[in-house]
């Protein structure tokens, strides 16, 4: 199992433009947006205010909410679809299928996609942490004054939500890539689905009616971490469970389709 994962990672790393668009663009935009918004705030207001109360880890935890952004999901879906579509695009299944079981390739692609997405989330968090630290130091705060330990559990809880949300996104994108054998069709479908659920949520004004959608489930889980000042187990676990259900159902469905898929020409 370990060896196909390495080959999948090698393939996506060698497609530099797709790797950058899929997994580096979101961290880059997130850091730029952070610099822009916090920089303006710093220049206009914050410089004059006392530096107390800045928590870089909590800020990094909040930055992981980028996984819920429709535009970020479009880029992430592009990266995931690139991993799953490569052997259809270049008709190379013929070299691979006789060598291992289809389950090994499906798992390897899924693991490679999740590893790249985790790297992306890590870069988002590190970027946010770095920008927050730099701006705080510019405001005169000492590194020793930061309250790191308090927000570390919050960071890991938020990371788990983001990973679960991207797991659901990965499984859905993989399923659609197998169905369409095309990354564009899969990416657009995932994007439109995500956008539609967000719009419906806005229109209905409450996530309760649409609690089953990945976006609402992620919001529910995040509310358990960030709202009310203390961790709320029920909404958090409910959200995570719904996201995992999406991941498992789409993942199993995608694998079953792939397992039975005829490849008379890739």
């Amino acid at each position: 199992m370990a060896l196909p994962v390495r080959s999948e990672l090698q393939k996506i790393f060698r497609q530099r433009a797709l790797f950058a668009a899929g997994f580096l663009a979101v961290p880059a935009f997130a850091v730029l947006a952070k610099i822009f918004t916090d920089g303006i705030l710093f220049a206009r207001v914050a410089r004059a205010l006392p530096a107390a109360g800045i928590d870089p880890v909590l800020s990094a935890a909040r930055s992981l909410g980028v996984a819920d952004n429709s535009l970020a999901q479009l880029f992430f879906a592009l990266g995931v679809a690139s991993i799953f579509v490569v052997d259809y695009r270049f008709a190379t299944w013929r070299h691979l299928i006789p060598r291992r079981s289809r389950l090994a390739f499906w798992s390897a692609k899924s693991v490679a996609a999740l590893a790249c997405l985790s790297l992306s989330l890590l870069l988002v968090a590190l970027g946010d942490l770095g920008v927050t630290l730099v701006l705080a130091v510019l405001r005169g705060q000492q590194i020793g004054d930061f309250t790191w330990a308090i927000s570390v559990p919050v960071f890991f809880l938020a990371l788990l939500v983001a990973v679960a949300e991207l797991l659901a996104l990965t499984a859905m994108t993989a399923l659609l890539t197998v169905v369409f054998r095309s990354s564009m069709a899969a990416v657009l479908s995932v994007f439109l689905f995500g956008l539609a659920t967000v719009l419906l949520q806005v229109y209905l004004g409450s996530s309760s009616e649409l609690g089953w959608t990945p976006s609402a489930a992620a919001s529910l889980a995040r509310s358990g971490v960030f709202d009310g000042g203390r961790f709320q187990v029920v909404p958090y676990l409910s959200g995570i469970c719904i996201l995992l259900c999406w991941g498992v159902v789409c993942g199993v469905l995608g694998f079953v389709l792939f397992q039975r898929q005829e490849l008379p020409s890739e």
Binding site: L3, P4, R6, S7, Q10, K11, R14, Q15, V86, F90, A91, T92, R94, H95, L96, P98, R99, R100, S265, E266
Partner: peptide
């Protein structure tokens, strides 16, 4: 097996491609 027209990943070299297949 060599089936139909030979197809490869255009972004890989011949050496990398064979090494990748061996590792798979």
């Amino acid at each position: 097996a060599l089936i139909d027209a030979p197809t490869f990943y255009p972004f890989m070299t011949a050496r990398e491609f064979l090494a990748m297949l061996a590792s798979v």
